[in-house]
Simulated assay, not measured.
Amino acid sequence: MPLSQLPLDRLPIRRLGPDDLLACADLSENRGWPREEHKWGLLLAAGVGHGIDDPSGKGLLAVCVVTSYGPELAAIGMVLVAERYARQGVGRRLMRHVLAEAGDTPLSLYATSNGQPLYEELGFTEVARAEMLKGSFTAAEPAPERSVRPATAEDVLQVLRLDHEIFGADRTHLITRLPAFADQLRVAEQDGEITGFAALWPNMETHVIGPVIARDTGTAQALIASLAAATDRPLRTDIDTGHSALVTWLKANGLEQITTNAVMIRSRPELPGDGNRRFAPLTVAAG
């Protein structure tokens, strides 16, 4: 039977690859999101995209990306359904497909208020909230003094060890892509030991700060201030609301809340790693 004659619940779900980048960006635009082609490139390279082709031949009908961090965790992001197929069960079907493929692997995601009821129905539980902040950084309230410098190739092993310890799972396939993906990658150090790192990467008219991994709030502030000084673009970042001191400092420096999202997880009681030192994700789409 031709695809155009199949009901929505029988349309095939396929793996996506780099050749699907523009179709994914088109679907983002269709739902009123930025195209974010640079981010899509990273997600499709480091993760696994799942998509349903529109039987009318108009690109993708639905898409999501799963970024795996081994048996401890995988993150679901960019769950999108074309406007013309919204509220017809397509998103639920795609999510059930992803859950079946994941098996016993715990899954995490950042949920909007619109998407949260579906994720709760599928067994996800809210474990935290994240605040999306955006604005031009003013540096009105200085960061504490820390030693911050551009990362070098010699820092890679230390950065990977620190990230694994704090994130709680192996992100080597993402972190090693940061030097090419980000415009700036900086580390904080004390007595020759790396105590944190953060990246600044381009996304449409903004620069996104993430990930931010740091020993303490002061180190996170120093990393962010150093990155902010390297760009004239508005900044965007997503901070766990548990880091209230950092959120307050960012707002004092010109950033404003855009929205909040629920951090949700399935098949384990909480996220792995150390949330006290994990300040911002690389992107909410990758957990």
Rank of each mutant, 00 (worst) to 15 (best):
I239K: 01
V90W: 00
I52N: 02
T105V: 15
L271K: 02
D216I: 04
R10V: 06
R84M: 09
A280D: 04
M1F: 06
P144D: 00
M95I: 03
L160C: 11
P12K: 10
S147F: 00
I224C: 03
A140G: 13
H38V: 13
M95S: 02
V284K: 05
A199Q: 04
A111I: 10
I239G: 03
R84A: 12
Y85V: 12
G115E: 02
T125M: 12
P55N: 09
G123L: 14
R35L: 11
A252P: 02
N253T: 08
L16Y: 02
Q221M: 10
H50M: 06
P34I: 00
A25K: 07
L43M: 14
E126A: 15
I166W: 03
G123T: 11
G115T: 06
T125I: 10
E131V: 15
S28K: 07
E205M: 07
A198H: 06
D9Y: 08
P34F: 07
L185T: 07
A45F: 08
T217I: 03
F167P: 05
L99K: 09
D163I: 07
R186S: 12
R236Y: 00
L3E: 12
Q184K: 12
R31A: 08
L246I: 10
A86N: 12
H97T: 06
K251D: 02
V81C: 06
I76V: 15
V208R: 07
R96Q: 14
D163C: 09
A225W: 03
I213P: 03
E165A: 12
I166F: 00
L246D: 05
G115W: 06
P234N: 06
L122D: 06
R268G: 02
T112P: 09
A198T: 09
S136E: 09
I265V: 15
F167Y: 07
L60Y: 01
I224S: 00
I258H: 01
Q5G: 11
L118R: 05
H173F: 11
A169T: 04
A23W: 08
G196E: 00
N261G: 08
G115D: 04
